[in-house]
C-alpha cells in the first residue's frame, strides 16, 4: 500500500521534473570509468597499491595486459585481464598513461 502510494507520487513527480539542460560541461575522459576498475588494487588513478600504473606508457600498459591475457596458469591479475576487449584495453592504457 505504502509502495503503491510512493509509486503514484513518483509518476507525478516524473511528469513535472524539468529535463536536464545541455550545459557546457567537460566531457568525462573516455577510459576513465573502465580504468577505475584498476584503482581498487592500484590506488585511485593508479597511484600505488600493488603497483603504481599512473604515467606508464600506453604501450607498456597495453602490452602487459595483452601478455597477461595469455599467461598460463593464470594468477588473479591474468584472469582479470581476460575480462576486457582489445578496444577496452587501449582505452584503459591511454587513460592511465595520462595520469600523474
Amino acid at each position: 500500500m505504502k509502495q503503491g502510494k510512493i509509486m503514484r507520487a513518483l509518476v507525478l513527480a516524473l511528469a513535472v521534473s524539468p529535463a536536464f539542460a545541455q550545459t557546457t560541461t567537460t566531457a568525462p575522459p573516455s577510459g576513465r570509468l573502465l580504468a577505475s576498475n584498476c584503482f581498487q588494487c592500484h590506488g585511485t588513478n593508479g597511484s600505488g597499491g600493488l603497483e603504481r600504473l599512473a604515467g606508464e606508457s600506453v604501450s607498456e600498459i597495453y602490452n602487459e595486459l595483452k601478455e597477461m591475457q595469455r599467461k598460463s596458469p593464470p594468477k588473479m591479475m591474468d584472469m582479470h585481464a581476460r575480462g576486457y576487449t582489445d578496444a577496452q584495453i587501449r582505452l584503459i592504457a591511454d587513460y592511465l598513461s595520462k595520469q600523474r
Binding site: 581498487q40 592500484h42 585511485t44
Partner: peptide, 9 residues
Amino acid sequence: KWFTALMGD
C-alpha cells in the same frame, strides 16, 4: 595489499 588498496580507494 589488495585490502589496503581497496580501503584506500
